[in-house]
């Protein structure tokens, strides 16, 4: 019932306060947005690859590397031609690839990939309950943060149900790869999936309430989190990187101009 990327590995990142992890994710996204040139993004990638390796995010990366590649190549392709500029390298019909476009496109691919990868690092060291706890600590009402995290939790559960239903229908000869008639073959899957999902959602709401969800008053927690030195250190390090990038941009480095 985890998101599927969580690696229950003790270590530096797992010991960080959930709020720290959320803030680090925010800072990492901002770093990726500020840096535009591959030359500045590659050291960031190196830093986050090291962090990802320490946090146990590599199995997750192996599962979705194709997504990163796809996003990277698509952005590279689009921005190389769409960025514009005067220094044309070659043309494809009415579209011209420019040198700044090439750099910006490569940078955009790296930026989007980095954002996905830092998300993976976050998921690798943060079960949904801690994400919810972090959001609550940041001031979001528990009911809202819990509902948000529940959507993460229910996705794999939903997947399990779909697999069971698929097994049951395949055992009766259902083939799910029949070209154009494919949609029709999904009817035997959709009816039990939706009926089951609705029933499950109803029961879940009742189960939550019968376990005291929504009671007035302060809510307790099995895990007690305290902000410590390591939280300050991690935030200070990433903030310093971000500040450096912003300063460089301010002085005219790291950006791409047409």
């Amino acid at each position: 019932m985890s998101t599927g990327f969580f690696a229950d590995r003790p270590g530096f990142f797992r010991r960080l306060h959930p709020v720290t992890r959320i803030l680090l994710l925010f800072l990492a996204f901002t770093c990726a947005l500020v840096a535009q040139r591959p030359l500045y993004l590659l050291p960031l990638w190196a830093m986050f690859l090291l962090a990802g390796w320490r946090a146990g995010a590599m199995p997750g990366l192996r599962r979705v590397w194709w997504l990163l590649l796809l996003v990277g190549l698509a952005s590279f392709g689009i921005w190389t031609f769409a960025f514009g500029g005067t220094e044309s390298i070659f043309s494809l019909g009415p579209f011209s690839a420019t040198r700044p476009g090439l750099i910006f496109g490569a940078g955009m691919g790296l930026r989007l990939g980095l954002m996905i990868f830092t998300g993976l690092i976050f998921l690798a060291c943060t079960p949904v309950e801690e994400f919810s706890q972090g959001l609550t600590s940041l001031g979001l009402p528990f009911a809202v943060s819990f509902a948000l995290s529940l959507s993460f939790r229910l996705a794999p559960l939903f997947g399990d149900t779909v697999r069971s239903i698929l097994d049951a229908q395949r055992a009766r000869g259902l083939k799910t790869n029949r070209g154009l008639s494919r949609l029709k073959t999904y009817v035997p899957l959709l009816a039990p999936v939706f009926a089951g999902a609705l029933r499950r959602a109803d029961l879940l709401a009742i189960a939550l309430e019968s376990k005291g969800f929504g009671r007035p008053g302060r809510r307790g927690s099995l895990y007690e989190w305290r902000v410590g030195f390591r939280d300050g250190l991690a935030l200070a390090l990433l903030f310093a990187v971000l500040a450096g990038l912003i300063t460089l941009r301010f002085w005219g480095y790291g950006g791409v101009s047409r």
């Binding site: 949904v128 939790r153 809510r219 307790g220 927690s221 099995l222």
Partner: peptide
Amino acid sequence: ESQLFSSFAELDVAFGPENLGLPAAEIR
């Protein structure tokens, strides 16, 4: 199965006592 929705078994068990607002040691 509709009563289980957490990432760890201990969190499923802790969910009720957490809602009761008990201290962490008591929940554990």
